[in-house]
Design a protein around this nucleic acid. Structure first.
Lengths: 344, 344
DNA sequence: ATTAGCACTCTTAGCACTCGAGTGCTAATC
DNA sequence: GATTAGCACTCGAGTGCTAAGAGTGCTAAT
């Protein structure tokens, strides 16, 4: 049994229908509601064929058919067409572009919020990777006896901070001097380079401060590596709108999965760099997302900030619409990020 | 009909029972499972009395009784006793105290995580108020042509950043000089003072930079005021464990309420400064939390960081246990925050 | 190749029924 | 006078049955 043109058209009709209704679609309703000039019996035959090929599944005998992950894959690969956006959707996007923000974190938060609001799915945004961005300034600010706050600023316009311990005999002037020295020496180097070379190079100059520098390096390393607050999540509870999650148990496991930022980080990390990715159901690495689809987009700003964002929803997702929205968002994000600097 | 001692004992037994089981408790089971030497009939009479007084409610005739908010209020006001912690609970607390963190944000995250893990309710943590903490350092770092990052460090050990626009003719040296001037002049002043006086005072010195300073002030103001990322939330989905939220509709409205950080911010803000607060069901201002209880505690560190944290759960909450945990946490939080500076 | 027709399957909604836990009331008991 | 045993009554949850509806596969006719 091979795939032919008519089978494709039927499959597509089934998918379109199922995406809207979430109800298994049967041969009769299909022949009634579409303009194939075919009887239900013919469609039944074709459906049986499609099931044999693995594109359709039957929840139980005498129920309609449901598209398999394989079907969705075919769908997005070869029959997807961009959807027009509605008034409402455009309005949210426009509002998003006009929003006043003053830090990269805020941009991420707004992006996630808008995405989830438009799509009604769950939105995730991955912050630009710290370790690949370049140092602009490092400042050590004394806090109390024996402790200081280290603040690193990068070209992506983000600051990271960490409280560090300092030798009790270290003076304010010395801290200032070290800050200046590091800033000067490592200006425009990537953070990972800084972490790598700091001790070796400056340790030679300031022998007696070597252990302090070591601890500083450790902090930088850890802070650059920790992906914890690099993931922004919004609209997790949107999933509860969809009938496939009417079962509280399922909803719970989805929400638990999504509350764990490590899973999300891996997800986005993997997709970073790809213009768009679509991962369907069982294609997901994470066990817990096996009946979700993930669509992501990456943005790039000059050779500067680079991040990824996307949405998570049921496999029965409006792929066309989502892609259009992500595309739009991708373009706007650059604008908003640049805008950071143009609006006050 | 007045309240007497026996009524109190019965009411208490009902509350204790209901907190554990979430099932309306009836006269028979109560006389069976407790050591009142009373028949179910007597208890029934007393229960009718308690209902008349507004302490009990009946979901429908021929169901057991459920404590009213008023009953819980009485319970926490006059019959509450601290609960012992279990092994598991202590273990989590211990792990919490040992955790290595290097920024206030991380402390908040860990606190929220641990709280929700121990209690199985939803935890919220409010970050120390920015505008009341004192400036330690202000740094303007040039990013690109016409823009810079302003980073303010406070005595609470947190840094806040914002991208600002700068006049194109402003040199690196001038930025540096302004940073130094502001830091020097406003060292140890509260952020709100800085925002208030900056333009007036320094504007006089740097007349030609007045508009720049104005925009900087605006940024500081806004950044200090924005409560957005000052609230840390954890374990929102824990609520799904409880039978009162088995209805997806209810769960959805709870989660929506809790996803809105403004609501939470108001909640915690109001409780800040109070050692402990307990707000029961309808006592909540927020419409959406009318069948939840909120328990909060505030911490203070010297006259330094001051924040609030708490948990949200069903009105049928283990108040005794929660209070004990919050008390413990309150003590540990100081330790952890100080520890920020002692561990590397 | 298509389709009409038919027998069969499976889910869902509705209905009557039972069972258990709970209630209020009254009369007997301590 | 307080307590309790007893009784009739109510309500919700669970059970079993039936009928309706949607869908299927197969076969024979077009």
């Amino acid at each position: 049994m091979a795939m032919d043109n008519r089978k494709l058209r039927i499959l597509r009709a089934i998918i379109d229908e199922y995406i809207l209704s979430a109800v298994p679609v049967g041969s009769k309703s299909l022949s009634r509601n579409t303009d194939f000039a075919l009887s239900s019996a013919t469609i039944r035959n074709e459906m049986a064929g499609l099931e044999g090929l693995g594109y359709l599944e039957q929840p139980h005998t005498s129920a309609g058919r449901v598209p398999s992950d394989k079907a969705y894959r075919l769908y997005v690969d070869s029959m997807l067409q961009r959807a027009k956006l509605t008034e409402r959707e455009l309005a949210v996007l426009q509002r998003y572009c006009g929003v006043r923000v003053s830090s990269v974190e805020e941009v991420m938060r707004e992006t996630a919020r808008s995405l989830s609001e438009i799509t009604n799915y769950t939105a995730i945004v991955l912050m630009p990777e710290m370790s690949e961005s370049r140092l602009r300034h490092l400042q050590l600010v004394p806090l109390a006896q024996g402790s200081a706050l280290a603040v690193a600023v990068t070209d992506a316009g983000v600051a990271r901070e960490a409280v560090i311990r300092i030798p009790p005999d270290m003076s304010v002037e010395e801290l200032e001097q070290i800050s200046r020295m590091i800033t000067q020496r490592y200006y425009n180097r990537t953070i990972s380079t800084v972490a790598e070379r700091l001790v070796v190079e400056i340790g030679e100059i300031l022998r007696e401060r070597k252990s302090f520098l070591q601890s500083l390096t450790g902090t930088i390393d850890r802070s650059a590596a920790s992906g914890t607050h690099l993931v922004e999540l919004s609209g997790a509870t949107n999933i509860l709108h969809y009938p496939e999650y009417r079962d509280v148990q399922k909803a719970k496991s989805f929400l638990a999965a999504v509350e764990n930022k490590d899973t999300l980080y891996d997800l986005l990390k993997q997709a970073s760099g790809m213009e768009f990715t679509i991962t369907i159901g069982s294609e997901n690495k994470a066990e817990t997302l096996r009946d979700c689809s993930v669509v992501t987009a990456s943005y790039k700003l000059g050779d500067l900030a680079l991040g990824t964002f996307g949405i998570i929803g049921p496999t029965r997702m409006q792929y066309g619409k989502v892609l259009t929205i992500l595309e739009y968002m991708r373009a706007s994000l650059g604008e908003v990020l640049t805008g950071l600097q143009d609006k006050e």
